[in-house]
Simulated assay, not measured.
Amino acid sequence: MQKVTMADVAKLANVSKSTVSQYLNKRYEYMSEETRRRIAGAIEQLQYRPNVIARSLKQKSTATIGVIVFNILHMLTTQVLRAIEDMCQQHDFHVIVCNTDDDPEKEKKYIDMLWAKQVDGFIIFPTGKNVDLYKRMIEARLPVVFVDRTVEGIDVDAVLLDNERAVQLGMHYLIEQGYKHIGLVAPPFAPHVIPRTERINAFRYALREANLPIKEEWIITEQVKHISGRLDALLQRNKLPEAIFAINDLTLMEVLTFVKRRQLTIPHDIALISIDDVPFASIYTPSLTTIAQPAFEMGEKATERLFMQMGGEISPQMFRLAPKLIERDSAKKRGDKGE
Score class of each variant (00 low, 15 high):
185 V>T: 15
186 A>N: 05
186 A>H: 06
187 P>Q: 10
188 P>C: 03
188 P>H: 10
188 P>A: 08
188 P>V: 11
189 F>Y: 15
189 F>H: 12
190 A>P: 02
191 P>G: 12
194 I>L: 02
194 I>M: 04
195 P>W: 04
196 R>L: 08
196 R>E: 09
197 T>A: 09
198 E>C: 12
199 R>Q: 11
199 R>A: 07
199 R>L: 13
200 I>L: 02
200 I>Y: 03
202 A>M: 04
202 A>N: 02
203 F>C: 04
203 F>K: 06
204 R>F: 08
204 R>V: 14
204 R>K: 14
205 Y>L: 05
206 A>N: 14
206 A>C: 13
207 L>D: 09
207 L>G: 13
207 L>S: 05
208 R>K: 09
209 E>K: 14
209 E>Y: 10
210 A>L: 10
212 L>F: 08
212 L>R: 05
213 P>D: 12
214 I>H: 06
214 I>S: 10
215 K>R: 15
217 E>H: 08
220 I>T: 12
220 I>S: 06
220 I>W: 07
222 E>M: 04
223 Q>E: 13
223 Q>D: 14
224 V>L: 00
225 K>P: 00
226 H>L: 04
227 I>Y: 00
231 L>A: 02
232 D>C: 12
232 D>P: 02
232 D>I: 05
234 L>T: 13
235 L>S: 12
237 R>K: 11
238 N>F: 12
239 K>M: 12
241 P>H: 02
242 E>Q: 14
242 E>V: 03
242 E>T: 06
243 A>P: 03
244 I>R: 01
245 F>R: 10
245 F>V: 11
246 A>V: 07
247 I>K: 02
250 L>K: 06
250 L>W: 01
251 T>C: 03
253 M>N: 10
255 V>L: 02
257 T>F: 01
258 F>D: 03
259 V>S: 01
260 K>P: 02
260 K>G: 11
261 R>V: 05
262 R>A: 11
262 R>L: 08
265 T>Q: 15
265 T>D: 13
265 T>P: 02
268 H>F: 13
